[in-house]
Amino acid sequence: MLKGVLLGFACYAAYAISDAFVKLLEGTLPIYEVVFFGAMLMLVALPFIKKPGDRWREVVMARKPTVWLLRAFCGAVGNLTSAIAFTELPMAEAFALIFLMPIFVTVLSVLLLREEVHWRRWTAVVVGFIGVLVVLRPGFRQLSEGHVAAIICGLTGAVGVISLRMAGPEEKRITLYGAGVLGPLLMGGLLMLPHFVWPTATQWLLVAGYGLLAGLAAILMMYSTRLAPVSAVAPTQYSQMLWALVFGYFLFHNRLDWPTGVGIALILVSGLVTFVRWNQVTTWRRRTRIV
């Protein structure tokens, strides 16, 4: 199991470095092009994700087409808003708002899946939203489209998680990954056509780092979940905040004020508590054969 957890840390390190490449572009390349070329490079992970019994057509042919389309839409919007957030905001602040995803999952699971949520998880939800208010401080600081994009990214990520539950175990990994990549590829390709800008050599290198590292992260995640339970691997996602603080301080020279730091801490604690409680409930239900 230790190897799986370590691969989880490596996976999210790759994701964090991938996001840093987006920020290094500094908005010099249209976001739609970044999303398109990044998604194209993420396709390199498909041969590694494909199992011996899988067929290539299953990348686009799902047992539940509606769920596939939902994941494709979430992938498109999530990649776009993620790129905007990391371009506009300090990395730590962007990650903090994106990490609202577990909180959104809790709310959506009640609204869409009719799951029962007890007071501890609702308390974590409230604490998380207080953290958001502390970070954003509406009326006391200027809010940007980056803040809105980061929150939307967290929300679409939560919808993506809900879609995984809707897909169930019968949907293949290659199908789910294909939806998450082909959605951004199609959307980015269509939106970049009217105002296409040919990237410079430096921009090509940065876009390549973004896409290839995201593909590598997907491969690492696949192997990590083979060697360790998802419940042990998932919390390693929060290690991205350490990378964000290091990159923000040494590479991008970002300085976070203390209220933002407090808000980020509240969001992280809320997300971790929400995840732990969800995992405990899920484990208990499986043991009692409720799910």
Rank of each mutant, 00 (worst) to 15 (best):
M1R: 02
L2V: 07
L2F: 11
L6I: 12
L6F: 14
G8T: 06
A10M: 09
C11V: 05
A13V: 06
A13C: 11
A20N: 05
F21H: 04
V22W: 04
E26M: 02
G27L: 10
G27F: 02
L29I: 15
L29M: 08
P30I: 11
P30W: 07
Y32D: 02
V34F: 14
F36D: 01
M40N: 06
L41K: 06
P47C: 10
F48K: 09
K51P: 09
K51V: 13
P52Y: 12
D54F: 13
D54N: 13
D54L: 08
E58P: 02
V59E: 03
V59F: 01
A62E: 02
V67W: 13
A72Q: 04
L80E: 10
A83T: 10
A85C: 00
F86I: 04
L89E: 07
M91Y: 10
M91C: 10
M91I: 13
A92S: 15
A94S: 07
A96R: 03
I98V: 09
I98E: 10
L100C: 13
P102M: 15
T106L: 15
L108H: 02
V110R: 07
L112H: 01
L113A: 12
E116Q: 11
V117F: 03
W119N: 11
R120P: 08
R121C: 03
A124F: 08
I130A: 14
V132G: 04
P138Q: 15
P138T: 15
G139C: 05
Q142E: 15
L143H: 07
G146C: 13
A149C: 08
I152Q: 01
C153V: 02
G154T: 10
G154A: 14
T156D: 03
T156R: 05
G157H: 00
G157K: 00
V159N: 10
V159W: 14
I162E: 00
S163T: 06
L164W: 06
R165G: 12
M166Q: 10
P169T: 15
E170D: 15
E171A: 11
E171Q: 12
R173I: 06
T175I: 02
G178D: 13
G180E: 04
G183Q: 10
P184D: 08
L185P: 01
L185D: 00
L186V: 14
M192F: 14
M192C: 15
L193I: 14
H195L: 09
V197D: 00
W204H: 13
W204M: 12
L206R: 01
V207D: 12
A208G: 06
Y210R: 05
G211D: 01
G211F: 00
A214P: 01
A214S: 12
G215Q: 05
L216F: 00
L220S: 08
M221Y: 15
M221E: 10
M222Y: 15
Y223A: 06
S224N: 05
L227F: 10
A228D: 00
P229T: 13
P229Y: 03
P229S: 11
V230G: 04
V230M: 15
A232F: 06
S239G: 14
Q240K: 07
M241K: 00
M241C: 07
G248T: 01
L251C: 05
H253T: 09
N254C: 04
L256Q: 03
D257F: 00
G261I: 08
G261Q: 09
A265G: 07
V269F: 07
V269T: 12
F275A: 09
F275D: 13
R277H: 12
W284H: 05
W284K: 10
R287A: 13
T288E: 10
R289F: 11
